[in-house]
Design a protein around this nucleic acid. Sequence first.
RNA 1: GCGCCUGUAGCUCAGCUGGAUAGAGCAUCAGUCUUCGAAACUGGUGGUCGAGGGUUCGAAUCCCUCCAGGCGCACCA
Length: 579
Amino acid sequence: MRPMFKQHTIEQELSAGLQQARQQAFPDLAPVEDAATAVATGDERHGDYQCNAALALAKPLRRPPREIAQALADQLHDPERLERVTVAGPGFLNLRLRAEWLARRLELVQDDDRLGVPAPGTGRTVLLDYSSPNVAKPMHVGHIRSTVIGNALDRLHRFLGYRVVADNHLGDWGTQFGLLLLGFRHFADAAAYETEPIEELERIYVRSYNRSQEDPAWLAAARAELVKLQQGDGENRRLWASFVEHSLREFNGLYRRLDVRFDLVRGESFYNDRLPVVIDLLRQKGLAEESEGALVVRLEAEKLPVCLVQKSDSGYNYATTDLATVLSRVEEFNPAAIIYVTDERQQLHFRQVFAVSRRLGVTTRLEHVWFGLMRLPEGTFSTRQGNVIKLERLLDEAERRALEVVHQTSPAMPPAQQREVARAVGLGAVKYADLSQHPQSLVTFTWDKALALEGNSAPYLQYACARIASVQDKYREQFPGGEPRTVPIRLGAPIERTLAIKLLRFPEAVLRAAEHYRPNLLADYLFDLAQAYSTFYQNVPFLKAETGVRESRVRLCDITARTLRCGLHLLGIETPERI
RNA sequence: GCGCCUGUAGCUCAGCUGGAUAGAGCAUCAGUCUUCGAAACUGGUGGUCGAGGGUUCGAAUCCCUCCAGGCGCACCA
């Protein structure tokens, strides 16, 4: 297949034409007031794209908006693309694209591996920090958001040409290990640690934590264990390494299941040696000062609370670690951006860390992509309250429910294939449930919502793909030797035109989702596309259509399937040939 | 007390950063399988976009106040 053929989206191309028209029509207008861009219409009756610049320009130009719109229309010479340019309402400029042009462009898209999506990230590196679970605790449903959203951002950026360094910044260092080490010495069950290490570590942690709440001596002993660990005590390091190893084994099983891969797995411990360096640097630059026995950076200029970088017992905290991490990443990878995907509770923390980083001279773009915390109808998850739902259980349940549906709808399918389909459908449903929602919205976990298999859900999209695969098989059976690609695409029926426009907007959806760090914008697009396809499928014949029309429609099916597959792949969702 | 976020159909959520008559999915009602896969399609019911002001040609979207909820606010990460 030919490589990428277009550098720009339709939106961008039309906007460029509008800019030119604007300059010709009103050469004296300052560029600041220039906002002649094309935007997709919400209603087909208003054309395919619209430009609202005339309304905004009415004031600076002191002329009626309709007149301005007409002047723009008069300067807009693009007979190849545009079928009709009309002034409507108070001064909207409606653009209707030529069906032949749409058809030709679709043909090019079909020959393009990238489906017309540009690669603006080429030559640039992005460091993506996501998932980041805590060692010695099981991953629960709350972790799925960072993992699934982060992974979608990873895939989106890679597709857009960026070199992505995905780093799993494990919580493998810090106070909890004091409690864990102490607890492990006192009440570890060797057999349980052998068979179910994570569950045993969790049990130990909860017990040790509870005791620390009522027993100051216990807390002090835990702190002592932590200091020993940080000073490199052999026995504590061995135990700690064992905790990390067991946790990683469990995490990796889940990541494999979710098809999530990291380029780096560097926990907080990785930066341990650099913490004193950060403090020295802060002191050298005169940014840090003593306060109540601790070392802090004041951030009054940024209107932020002070950032504590060294505790009064001279220990380091997580701001220190994150600062060391930023410096290390900038030095090693020189990325265009470092992106953190965590829950909403860390907003202030990252604003502080970013502010201090800038004072240290870091100019790299730093982004905190936060998402709403997941909770239960009765409140937040808490290890100590024991109301967590383990991620593994969620995934098991998803596959189980999907298998029930497969049994019902595809009883003739071989059992092994049924299980395979149920796996792809179940996991897809879980991922899609998270990805189709605005990341920042509050999420209240319910089984039915997380495992929805109908309506706006992954299976709906997977089903559309499977039906297309079936159509393509039937076409090959009934018309052996037929080559749809040698037949031009024609957009006769209105639904074909609608589908064509939607297909051609795929690049816009991908770019927007990445730009705003919002996979749900892509999910929305895919659902909308699949709906248009379902309407198309249900209302016009393919294989029974006359020769020529038939091939054109089979081509539309192919492009739709590839777009859906590509889009779902970018969300980390599989598309089996049959479901 | 200060800061960030949320409030849209009975329920779960979108809403392209200020555009035209606010959209989907569940649920509900009525239709569509002897014909390309009904996990689907067609149509109906259902909204003072939390409340009240303001900004302007135009507000769910921007500003202010209030109400309700979530989350933060230096020695846990």
